[in-house]
Amino acid sequence: MSDLPLTGDAPVARRRELFVGKRFSRWLDRRIPPKDRITLSQKNVFIFPTATGFAFGGLVALLILGAINYQASLVYGVAFLLGSLFLVTILYTFRNLSGLTLELAGARPGFVGEDVEISIRVTRPEGRAREGIQLGWPEGILQWAELTGQVSDTVRLYVRAPSRGYFNPGRLLVETYFPLGLLRAWTWVDLDVNALVYPRPVFGDFPRSVSGHRDEGQLIDPLGSDDFSDIKSYRPGDPVRHIIWRSYARSDELMVKQYASYVEPRLWLTLDGVSGDLEEKVSRLTGLALKATRADREFGLDLGTVRISPARGEAHLEQVLKELALHGLR
C-alpha cells in the first residue's frame, strides 16, 4: 500500500467541473448505477487521449510529413512504429482498468471539517499485473493502488466532510495513464458510500446539573444547601443559619448542621443544557461527550427522542456521537 499523494496532470478542480454537469451526472447514473461492488468492463470504462497523446499524434504527423518530403522509407517506418505503438497502447490502457473490482472496504467516521477515511478495496483478476492505477474523489487526493505484486489492495482515501450525518462523497474517480501516458482510461463509480460524519465539536464547560435523586447520586458539592448531611463543630465562617441553637443550649458547644447538594454525578447531555441553535447545541454536546470521555466520566445522552443511559468508554462515545450526528436528520 502506498500513501503517495499522486495526482495526474489535470488539477482536481478541473475534473470536478467535468464531473458536475447535471446531465452528465444523470447519464452516468443510468450507465453506471450505484452499487457497493463494481467490476469494470467495456461498459463502464472510458478512454481518450491525453494532451500528451495529442502531442504524440502531432509528432507522428510531423514525421510522416518529413518522410513524404524526403522520400525516406525508414522515416515512414519510425512514424508508423510510433503510430502503432499508440494504437497498441489503447488496448493496454483499457486492459489496465478492465476487470478490476472495486468495493467499499470500510469508512471510518470523522468530524465535520475534517477528513473522513474511506477504504476502497481494489481487486484484479489473477494473471497480469495492473500498474499505475489511481483513485480518489474529486474533492480529495488521488491515491495509487499497488496491484503488481498482489491481487488486491486496500486504498485509504480521505475526503473533507461537509456536514454531519451520513455522507456520500459522490462518484469515485478511477483512472490510469499506463503504460505511456498517451491515453487516459477512467471511470466514475458510485460505491454507495455512507460515511458517518460527527458534528463539529465545540468545547465548553460541563453544565452543573442540579437535579437528581439521593439514592442514585453521589456527593459532589459539599457546599450545596439542598439536604442535611452531617453535624460538625462550628468554625468561624460557617453560616449562622446552620448553627444548632438547641444543641448549644444543652452543651455550650456551637454545632452546625451541614447540608450538601446531591449533584447528579453521571453527566446527562441534553439539548436544554447547552445554548445556541440546534446545530450549535449538537456541536456543544459533541464537545462535551469528547471531553467527558477524555476525563473518563460517565455520561448519558438525552435528546428527547433518543436516550442513552450513562456509561463510559469508546464504544459508548461512538454510540453517542452517532446519535448526535443523525439527530434531526432522520
Partner: peptide, 11 residues
Amino acid sequence: AMVSLNQLQVA
C-alpha cells in the same frame, strides 16, 4: 523512459 513515467514510482 516513457513507460517508467507512468509506473508506480517507488516500485
